[in-house]
Simulated assay, not measured.
Amino acid sequence: MNHSWSFILALFLSFNLNAQYAPAAGQAGSTALHKDSVLWADWGATPYVWSRGPQDISQPQLGLASNGQPAAAAGPAGDGTVFSLGDGGQATYYIHPPIIDGTGPDFAIFENGFSDSFLELAFVEVSSNGVDFVRFPAVSLTDTAQQVGGFGALEASKIHNLAGKYRANYGTPFDLSELADSSRVDINNIAYVRVVDVVGHIGEYGSYDSRGQLINDPWPTPFPSSGFDLDALGVIHQLPLGLRPLAQAEPLKIWPNPSPRAKALQLSLAYEAGAKLYIYNMQGQLVKSMQPNGPKISLSLAELPAANYIIGYKGQLAQLILLP
């Protein structure tokens, strides 16, 4: 390699390692949004699907994170309660009316970091149909030569599109226009927001950013409050109530519920030709889908184990208890 190209490459690497994003809350240029801002149009309800991760993914014998309940992540931020996701855990909100793309950020995620440098991070994904999720392109420029310890420090200016970038009471904003080129999501009809804990290990258990680089954040945190501590989802731009889809006036109904596995379910729904019905387990995994042929259908789920499920159709959700 000649000397001129070596010099250019060195400059390129130096720029990328030292590139800066918005700084911590309260500093000039910060994008942090305070919980008491006048921007909030609505707050997310209790996540309808969640899956907790372990306290320490390298020590599964410690069990799962257990601090807080999903309802702690509902309503306005800063109420003192959170839902801890654990290593790699996740929680999905259903938002109605849907979030839409407006000028500037469209929603924000709140965590309970106690300082500008103790930051626990999470990916954020959105969906229009509850099945196809698109992840915001996240970037972490934190050096990966040495593991950030369980109570180690991060710099907000080296973090982009990762929830938890800001301390408690300050939301990390997300702008749907960044996903405008995706064919898998309608940025003016975002009915689902998923938060996925980043496992900040710089080795075999680690999570990667949108560039394929490991994300270094405080790890391990082998406590009941392990992982991302989800406080709230604040909505800024939302479809006006008067424009909510017609289907919302005709709720999805299921009977009998609870239902024995051997007994066929009866469903009443706002039928639309071509629309699919989806069934998820409580870990958010799709276990069955079908295309109804009318507003009233009979459905057998004898092949599924007895458990709790979520049935979704055109943005409508209903919980089903399937008995042995």
Rank of each mutant, 00 (worst) to 15 (best):
S84A: 15
G63H: 13
H34N: 00
W40S: 02
P98K: 11
D87F: 06
P76R: 00
G88T: 06
S66T: 15
L64Q: 13
P98D: 14
A91K: 09
P76C: 03
A65Y: 12
F83W: 08
S58V: 05
S66Q: 13
I95C: 14
I57V: 13
G102R: 11
G44Y: 04
L85N: 09
L62D: 04
Y48E: 13
W50H: 15
A32L: 02
N67E: 14
P47H: 04
A74G: 04
K35N: 01
P97F: 12
D36S: 00
A72S: 13
N67P: 02
A65P: 13
T103I: 15
V49E: 02
G63T: 11
A32S: 04
G68M: 07
K35V: 02
G88N: 10
P54I: 05
P76N: 03
S66L: 12
T92F: 09
T103W: 09
I99E: 03
T92C: 10
A45I: 02
S37L: 05
W50D: 12
D56M: 05
S37R: 07
L85H: 10
Q69P: 02
I95R: 11
Q59K: 12
T46L: 06
W43G: 03
L39M: 04
I99P: 09
G88W: 08
T92H: 10
G44H: 06
K35M: 03
P60M: 09
G68N: 07
T46W: 07
W43P: 04
I95M: 12
G102W: 12
A65L: 11
